[in-house]
Nucleic acid binder design. Structure first.
Lengths: 191, 191
DNA sequence: GTCTATAGTCGGATAGAC
DNA sequence: GTCTATCCGACTATAGAC
């Protein structure tokens, strides 16, 4: 479990990409501030100095992870913008979002939630906030009132809530499906 | 803003209690790992060593904050246990919870969310998890299936979601009320 | 209860060889 | 691209005077 090259096959030459995956997991599990670059390097099977060749600083490593996230989410939002602003598009967006988050896994969401104090000091946080605003706008519609915006926000957190606080022994796929069903319910109940 | 005795009146003799309030705010705003005891002591107008007289360690200070939370939540859950297990009780519990969280303020919820990696290493986390299980059980009913448990979880996060991610310029009272309305909707939609 | 002073540790980051 | 070696700062926690 603590051996170098955990879970992978290829070595050498892909340190930069592997570092992203390892850091994502460790930041999510142990927290950004509690994860030292030495620990990440150890799990990668390299030294700290090698890490610094690929990333200018620890913050830079975290920012690179978040860049991938905002870019992926941005693509989805662009797709949504090309569709008519309708309840159907809203529901389609929720479904796509659920799928995308299934692909990302829970680590990324936990990373964001549990390290927001550190993230909020990075420049990339501006893009994250904008993506979040676009998401809420697409879910609640253009001229939504407070109740509508709260409803959209509730649908969003309902989607990720069960994933972040895993209910012990439940099947993850089934849990995600149930969460999506509740999220759809919330936006459908909109007057 | 950085002066000693911020926001208070009395000094000397209430350092222990004031430390709790100051630490809560700073841990929530800057993160547990990024807040040093020197900074907390500075804002209190005392030295680090004085803090160590009242609390054995930094972890002990964090644990003391969380103890207050779990005790308060436990009292509410005890009240709920004395009522019949019915939809009405479930809705009553949600309303009480919303009120209680209004009293606590958003700092405590943000503290828990943003520092869960550190909290999960504390002994008090066992009580927090148990309180959470009791809460979900009270909201979803005794023999609830997966969909029911996910629905209860969604109602919970819907209640706190808008508070944690403040929507810029909205009135906080109105936002809380709207969140409670959505949470009630979610549990009412239960078949 | 609060202070000064310090021990002891660890982390991020850099220099320069290979 | 990766290494060894090292610097420097910041932190928790303690000792002991007042």
């Amino acid at each position: 479990m603590t051996q170098p090259d955990a879970g992978g096959g290829a070595r050498r030459g892909d340190t930069r990409a592997r570092a992203l995956a390892v850091a994502l997991r460790m930041f999510a599990e142990r927290g950004y501030a509690n994860t030292s670059l030495r620990e990440i390097a150890d799990r990668l099977g390299v030294t700290k100095a090698a890490l610094y060749f690929h990333y200018r600083s620890k913050d830079d490593l975290l920012a690179a992870i978040l860049r991938e996230y905002v870019d992926d989410l941005g693509d989805l939002l662009d797709d949504a913008a090309h569709r008519p602003a309708s309840p159907a598009t809203c529901e389609w967006l929720l479904c796509e979002l659920a799928q995308q988050r299934g692909r990302w896994g829970s680590d990324l969401l936990r990373l964001i939630r549990q390290n927001y104090a550190e993230i909020s000091r990075l420049p990339v946080v501006a893009d994250m906030r904008q993506a979040h605003r676009r998401l809420l706008l697409a879910l609640s519609g253009p001229g939504a009132d407070l109740a509508g915006r709260v409803r959209a926000q509730a649908a969003l957190v309902a989607l990720e809530g069960p994933v972040l606080l895993p209910g012990d022994d439940d099947d993850e796929q089934a849990t995600r499906a149930a969460a999506l069903a509740v999220a759809l319910e919330i936006v459908r109940a909109r007057p």
